[in-house]
């Protein structure tokens, strides 16, 4: 595992990959980035919380890439137990027959290649739950 690195710091790799958020201890607002303060209540105390790995697609689009010959991809907003998460829908055909609003999805990992030291960057996406 030591030769892997998460694409983003809010992705925890390992046996049960999942996302973590910075939760405001005063109001419960959740953020995935480094914080200076809470945008909702201005508090400055945060705790790390695990995010549910299953959720429902609340919005999506299917982007046609600029580079000819590259496959379309599917940015989406996924409601993971009440927390909104952004990520691509993966492991299904990227068209409007296979991606639907309200579809149930689960978190999965997506490799993004290795650097010159052989470390592999691992990102995440959401795949349909059949």
């Amino acid at each position: 595992m030591s030769n892997q690195i998460p694409l983003v710091e809010y992705l925890v790799l390992g046996d049960a990959p999942h996302l973590v958020a910075n939760e405001c201890t005063a109001c419960g607002a959740r953020y995935f980035d480094r914080r200076n303060a809470c945008a909702s209540c201005f508090g400055t105390s945060f705790a790390s919380v695990d995010i549910a790995t299953e959720g429902e697609v609340r919005a999506f689009t299917i982007v046609t890439p600029w580079m000819p010959g590259t496959a379309p991809y599917v940015p989406a907003v996924v409601d993971c137990g009440g927390t909104s998460v952004r990520g691509n829908v993966v492991n299904t055909t990227p068209d409007a027959e296979h991606i639907t609003l309200g579809m149930k999805v689960r978190l999965t990992t997506v490799p993004f290649g290795a650097d010159t030291a052989g470390t592999e960057a691992i990102g995440y996406g959401f795949e349909p739950i059949n």
Binding site: Y10, R34, R86
Partner: peptide
């Protein structure tokens, strides 16, 4: 701010 090792555009959704 996300501790990202690469550009995230197209990898975790899109900002376009």
């Amino acid at each position: 701010r996300f501790g990202a090792v690469s550009s995230l555009e197209g990898k975790t959704g899109t900002d376009m």
